[in-house]
Simulated assay, not measured.
Amino acid sequence: MTLFEIIILALIQGITEFLPISSSGHLLLPAELFGWDSQGLAFDVAVHVGSLLAVMLYFRHEITQMTIAWVTRGFTKNQNTDSKLAWYVILATIPAVIVGLLLDDWIEMNARTALVIAATTIIFGLALWYADAKAQHTMELENITMKQAIIIGLAQVMALIPGTSRSGITMTAGLMLGLNRESCARFSFLLSIPVILGAGTLKTFDLVQATTPVDWSALLYGAAFSFISAYLCIFLFLSWISRIGMLPFVIYRMVLGAVLLWFVFG
């Protein structure tokens, strides 16, 4: 890849990993528009590392507090808000891990098509609009229950279908359960940490077994630009989401879905 391609693909990964707009759809566009080749496994690992470092840096204080509370209180009857939240993140991650391990190969071979991504981009975009329009937006993250966390975790399973958007579907579920927009986003971002870590680990194992030569400078640039764009995305999204709502992202998804359908049927 050229440096320009590296920067564009890394920025796309970093931004779409956390916005509710589907990374799968965006990663199809460079290939469809410009005929770019797939970025390859090593580059995929690098940009995921960049995204992971960004979300962990942004939530470093929460992660530290949750980890300490989980270790010291998580296995006792004297739970606090941080230890409970740590458990909720763990429990909400389990469904996606189980289904992902069972169906990942099947989904990769059968569902990663432009038509599927276009359809899910539109359908789950409308679901996000409905949830945002009808939700009460009253509950803070500190008041989330185990049942609500598990429901959000079950919704996250749908993100295994390309085009759904992991952040989009978890925020949709959170809104329907009464969480306010910022709390939905924060819980979604916290949930992304074990998901990205797990996916990156599996891809790393595949990379170790591969014999393809590695362009280390491309990986470094990819990780760096993914990190920068992901961190700015998280910061700006959490700063603005309570004011702007989900409608701009819903409209964007409709346009993206239409463009992808044009590629399919045009």
Rank of each mutant, 00 (worst) to 15 (best):
V89D: 01
V255T: 15
L27C: 12
L207R: 04
I8G: 01
S22A: 09
F59N: 11
K134V: 13
A258K: 10
T138N: 10
M146K: 12
L232G: 14
F235I: 11
I12N: 02
W106V: 13
L33N: 14
L101T: 06
S167W: 00
G125W: 04
F75A: 12
A224M: 10
V55Q: 00
A96Q: 05
S23Y: 00
I63D: 03
G40W: 00
G25A: 10
D215Y: 10
T121Q: 12
D82F: 14
Y252M: 03
V259E: 11
V157P: 06
F59I: 11
M158P: 05
R186Q: 08
I7P: 04
G257C: 11
L101W: 14
G35Q: 05
A69W: 06
I241D: 05
S38T: 07
L11F: 12
F187S: 07
I98A: 10
S192Q: 02
F75R: 10
G168H: 01
S167R: 06
A127V: 07
L236F: 15
L191T: 02
L207M: 15
M66I: 09
K77Q: 14
F18K: 04
Q65P: 10
G163M: 11
G178C: 07
D104L: 11
I94K: 03
M56T: 04
F18P: 09
G200D: 14
F237V: 13
T212I: 02
W87P: 02
G222R: 10
M146T: 15
W36M: 05
L197K: 13
I193N: 11
A127L: 15
F18M: 09
L126D: 03
P30M: 01
I169R: 02
L9Y: 00
F189M: 00
R112C: 07
W70N: 08
W216V: 10
K84W: 09
V55I: 06
I144T: 06
G40R: 03
F227V: 06
I151F: 08
E62T: 09
S192L: 00
P213K: 13
W240E: 14
Q156L: 02
R73A: 01
T67Q: 05
L126P: 06
D132S: 13
D132P: 07
T170L: 03
M56Y: 09
R60I: 13
C233I: 01
V208G: 09
V208H: 03
V97G: 09
H137I: 01
L115C: 02
V97L: 15
H137S: 05
W106K: 09
M56S: 08
I63S: 08
G153R: 00
L197R: 09
E17A: 00
A223E: 02
Y221A: 14
V208L: 14
A159Y: 02
P95M: 00
F249Q: 02
N78P: 14
A133C: 01
S226V: 06
M1P: 11
H61W: 14
R243P: 08
P20L: 11
G174M: 04
N80C: 12
D37R: 13
Y221L: 13
D206L: 13
I228Y: 13
L207H: 10
I228M: 15
R181M: 07
